[in-house]
């Protein structure tokens, strides 16, 4: 009997000790984790825009986030776009499924709150009211230079060969692809994992929207000059020339990983197509309603 008591006491004490160690560690690391993730995201964004390594980003370049929500009530569904208007003022623009403007609701929250997914979702739910449920769908970034749009950054996720592949894309205002970055994937090393290599993802660079709409993959080896350009082994001018030469061509599939290659090209195609449709609708509504946004 005495044994049981000592066992229980000691086990409890050790559990408490363990909990303290883990708790302290969690508190210390969770902020750093968020910070590092944010920094990483920023870095990926700038690299996609062409500011590699130490290249300084000009002051005039600004990024504006658009958060898309699906708002569901009992009888209907609509899409809400949360855009920053000015400083801490946000606007939730509600658009119905046919692209017609419904209403807009102003909202104030700090920029730090807006970056925090859960807090933002809560705020949006609050202003929409309890009769509807809101669900966060995705977020895109509009990049402006001196007030003029220069690019969009879109993140997305699609089914790869094994599990999901999550990517970030940069497109210019006419939806020509500026770059592709693979953020997460679980493809096989040596085969599908090659999707994150330059010679695959750079193939997407410079593909115009018209080509991208119907893009497919071909099972053929990449021509030697193109491969060199994709790997950045020739100078800048040459790369641009070769990229222009191949811009109407399909994507060359990876050896032994055709399914992964096809998954990526179809995924990218889908993301850009959907985005192009949505941004046109949003722009039309913003123009009709004479809403001023910083982009």
């Amino acid at each position: 009997m005495k044994d049981i008591i000592t066992i229980v006491v000691r086990l409890t004490v050790s559990c408490l000790l363990a909990a303290v160690v883990m708790g302290v560690c969690f508190i210390f690391t969770s902020n750093a984790k968020k910070h590092n993730e944010h920094v990483k995201e920023q870095q990926v964004m700038y690299e996609l825009l062409g500011y590699k390594g130490d290249a300084k980003v000009p002051e005039s370049v600004a990024m504006h986030e658009i958060y898309r929500y699906v708002i569901t009530t009992v009888e209907s569904q609509s899409i809400g776009y949360l855009v920053a208007v000015h400083g801490e003022e946000f606007l939730l623009v509600e658009i119905d499924l046919d692209g017609k403007f419904l209403k807009n609701i102003p909202l104030t929250m700090s920029e730090a709150d807006a970056l925090e997914g859960d807090l933002r979702d809560k705020k949006v739910q609050e202003i929409v009211g309890p009769s509807a449920t809101v669900k966060f769908a995705d977020q895109t970034v509009v990049v402006t230079d001196d007030g003029k749009r220069i690019a969009y950054l879109i993140s997305g996720k699609f089914q790869g060969f094994k599990t999901f592949v999550s990517v970030m894309l940069a497109v210019d205002p006419s939806f020509t692809l500026l770059g592709l970055e693979i953020l997460e994937h679980e493809e096989d090393p040596g085969l599908g994992a090659e999707i994150e290599k330059d010679y695959f993802k750079n193939q997407f660079k410079g593909k115009p929207f018209a080509v991208l709409k119907n893009i497919d993959v071909v099972k053929a080896p990449i021509p030697a000059d193109y491969l060199k350009a994709l790997n950045g082994k020739v100078d800048e001018q040459e790369i641009l020339k070769i990229r222009d030469m191949y811009k109407d061509k399909d994507i060359y599939a990876l050896t032994g990983a055709t399914i992964s290659s096809r998954a990526v090209s179809n995924g990218v195609k889908g993301i850009v197509k959907k985005f192009a449709y949505r941004v046109t609708v949003l722009d039309k509504v913003l123009a009709e309603q004479r809403l001023t946004v910083p982009f």
């Binding site: 569904q77 899409i79 499924l97 769908a137």
Partner: peptide, 10 residues
Amino acid sequence: VFEESDPDIK
């Protein structure tokens, strides 16, 4: 016809 998660894309 639309995908359930993208009701605005017909």
